[in-house]
Design a binder for these strands. Sequence first.
DNA 1: TCAAGATATATCGGATTCAGATATATTGCA
DNA 2: TGCAATATATCTGAATCCGATATATCTTGA
Lengths: 127, 127
Amino acid sequence: MARKTATPQLTQDHTELIVLSVLSEGPSYGYSISKQIAARSEDEFRIGASQLYPLLTKMEKQGLVETDWEEIKSKSADPDAPGRKRKWYRLASKGERRLQQRIEAHKRFTSLINSFIATDQAAGAVA
Amino acid sequence: MARKTATPQLTQDHTELIVLSVLSEGPSYGYSISKQIAARSEDEFRIGASQLYPLLTKMEKQGLVETDWEEIKSKSADPDAPGRKRKWYRLASKGERRLQQRIEAHKRFTSLINSFIATDQAAGAVA
DNA sequence: TCAAGATATATCGGATTCAGATATATTGCA
DNA sequence: TGCAATATATCTGAATCCGATATATCTTGA
């Protein structure tokens, strides 16, 4: 079975835009970011672990985000046991600037695409 | 020097949408399609030969476009000489349907992206 | 109790795609 | 005459995609 055509595939640029958007609403961590994106897009945008984690690492290296590890204590288990780890990402000021850039670039992108399909819209609108 | 961030990079899906749009206005050939896209996007969308020709071949195999070779006769040279060849592409009905699909998918895509950046728009709009 | 599914991070690896460079040939113009 | 433009096409190293795999913890319910 081939790739679905519901929406065009997400490029890393667009994925970065979405991830930065999510983080602009407050710190989050990988798994949650991925779930939020799926939920908020009605499952049409799916960022798998194999795309998300390398991207987050890249963004961290570029100084767009800053991170903290959280040690999640189990409610039931031994309080000295090493709980699950969660890596929190929060938007750095450089990331905020990048987000605004990406938003502008996306607007420009959309506007250009629209200029190409404008004529077809008319042609395709034959009732 | 890294890739420019003026607009997000074009995926094959988006490139196909644009190429189909151009062809919906009438038959064209590779070199011309590439020039039209550059001109109409103020040089922001550049489809190089190494992306365009494989894509056109793929589209032809999928039955989205039909082709004809044109033999361009030289004005000055020997009329029996083998002139330059030009491969014309015209939209097949399957391609028209694909174009409408891609337009719908793009609208959905844009709408989803906008839903993510909507909140940032407000946040970023601090004057 | 204990198995299954969800949570959580991360990498591997084959396939695809990207985009500059290369190849080849003709045409138009200064 | 020689160079830029026209015209199609492939090569190739790098980047990217995405399903699968690895590892480990937590939660829920039969």
